[in-house]
Design a binder for these strands. Structure first.
Lengths: 334, 334
DNA sequence: ACAGTGTTTGAAACTAGTTTCACAAGTCAA
DNA sequence: TTGACTTGTGAAACTAGTTTCAAACACTGT
């Protein structure tokens, strides 16, 4: 950093140099009121000469606005959240807002902590993921009186507007695809549900079905996790002809394990995922999965907070359509 | 948003309610000076009663600090950048700083635009990717007098401190691995170099080698791009026994194409990538690649800006070690 | 009892732009 | 020529916390 001759110039320094009042400099900066061409030029010259930059804090104190939105997301290290955030950032930017990201690592305590920090920083709105959070969260939000939109889920009865898909229905549509193909005994592989309400919602969507035998196992949300889960399933005494994975990462991992397995059931095993990652279409074989419109969700969520912040009216819940992508990893039970 | 009875209370409202001076309330808030237990209690009660929250802008105007760092990254929709940002956020947080992300889409004009916006918002430091940027960028940074750290590269002669790996050396180490295995005619698949200086650096690292014939092609940075590039290469009249991909996404795509190809050279073809994505280790077959320590880079880059912001001294360049991950996709030329 | 030191405290003056208000000057129509 | 607007402009008063200064008090040691 350069040391500069003294500290930064402020608006009054500019006014002095240009021989006008502070009010006139402010008028030139905001462009709101008209200023004579002569003075305007003098002010602009002075700004250039002093290399003046207006203080964002001073501006914010007057407008009462920071133009900052905070996003509390579990992690960026998953294609699905990264895509979402990418689109949120893009959309907020077109609305003149900027995005602060905060990772919560699927942990309600960290979410609360970071929410506190973001609110303290002056964010005008908050994006959160899912519906389960720390008890103090609501009081905090009420106190700061800031719009909150929950994403990755659709629950019309939730405290905050939700923008997302019905996770139970999504899981059910994957299940129906398998049952339509004649599968009756199905292994369900999911990430750990304890710290993830979306996983719990998906699991609960499966429970309601009768006449189908489900064997659910939870594992780490990674290739390695999926592979060991599938290995265990194949060694267990229970029969199954299809594997329903609650996310594509797990489904891809399951396919890798099946490819290496010498189990006679492996080649004929049906596998379905949920997410539709970009890599799933190009996987070998291409993965059958339920497409979740994360990009659209990012746009819708950003639009919802931006509207709420700008217009002051609480937006409606948004339910996004998902659809089955039938590709090569599911087939009728033999 | 609730309408509340009137507007938000400020510190003077609290002072009035607690029957103390504004200075005393400020003392309770900052905790800097000692306040008698009696008054402290009265102030805290008043804060609770009025549901007072201090204005971040007013605080910032006094401290001259926003505690905001901006990151200008090409995209979040690539595992490598997402991991990096994840770690940056985590590291900045431990330093009491928050992260604003801005996607530039590999475009210098957008980078400049977003830099302007971030600086206007009052970020105290900037993280950028690579070394090629719009001409006006430097003047802008000089004017705002803000620390800038460039990542994903190591170039001791660059205007700003760099934190990353030597891209030319990285590409060369991949090449040497292939030449050590006896390969002499090698196809090089890269993303478009026009808007990506890191790709250009990697390509330039390959040029210096004699006695080796390289056939370089550029394509979209995706599975589809890689597959069509490899398809074209196999149909072209030139011979080659190995494919050097300048990123793992391309290498994975190349492997997928080879798996589907009926070309007699396909099964024996060596493929090497650069990145070491989490998925590469579990790919089928596991991908030989050059590991780039993105997590460490995120930590080092965040530490560098944070130190510069906090201590005021420009940090040194940081060169991170990369290493070859020899897995299953490369073999000696027959 | 009294000086010397230490702790609380409030008034006022900061931080840096924005906005209101009032006044001056210029323009237009009757 | 005069009243009625419109425009340009600066002084001062906002926005909301923080910090400085000096007064006022409490406590200790002689």
């Amino acid at each position: 950093m350069k040391q500069k001759d003294q500290k930064k110039p402020n608006l009054r320094d500019v006014a002095r140099t240009a021989n006008v009042s502070a009010a006139t400099v402010s008028r030139v900066l905001t462009g709101a009121a008209t200023v004579s061409a002569d003075k305007k030029q003098r002010v602009e010259d002075a700004i250039e000469m002093l290399q003046f930059v207006p203080s964002s804090a001073a501006r914010a104190i007057n407008s009462g606005r920071t133009r900052l939105i905070g996003a509390l997301i579990p992690t960026l290290d998953h294609a699905i959240f990264a895509r979402f955030i990418e689109k949120v950032e893009e959309t907020l930017n077109t609305r003149g807002l900027s995005l602060i990201v905060a990772n919560t690592r699927f942990d309600a305590a960290q979410e609360l902590d970071k929410a506190r920090r973001l609110l303290d920083l002056g964010v005008e709105g908050l994006l959160v993921s899912g519906t389960s959070r720390a008890a103090e969260f609501d009081a905090l939000v009420r106190r700061y009186d800031v719009p909150v939109v929950a994403t990755s889920c659709f629950r019309a009865d939730y405290t905050y507007p939700t923008v997302g898909y019905d996770n139970a229905a999504v899981a059910r549509s994957a299940l129906h695809h398998l049952t339509d193909l004649g599968h009756r005994e199905i292994a369900v592989v999911s990430g750990y549900s304890a710290n993830n309400d979306r996983t719990r919602e998906r699991l609960s969507g499966l429970r309601s079905t009768v006449d189908i035998r489900l064997h659910a196992v939870e594992t780490a949300l990674s290739y390695a996790g999926a592979r060991s889960a599938v290995r265990d399933l194949l060694h267990a005494p229970r029969e199954f002809s299809a594997i329903l994975c609650l996310s594509d990462v797990l489904a891809q991992g399951a396919l890798l394990e099946l490819r290496h397995s010498s189990d006679p059931r492996a080649p004929g095993m049906s596998v379905i995922g949920i997410d539709d990652l970009p890599s799933s279409e190009h996987f070998d074989p291409p993965l059958t999965t339920v497409h979740l419109p994360v990009g659209k969700m990012g746009f819708a969520a950003a639009t919802a907070v931006a509207d709420w912040v700008e217009l002051g009216t609480q937006p409606d819940h948004v339910r996004l359509d998902t659809h089955l992508m039938t590709r090569a990893t599911t087939r009728a039970r033999e």
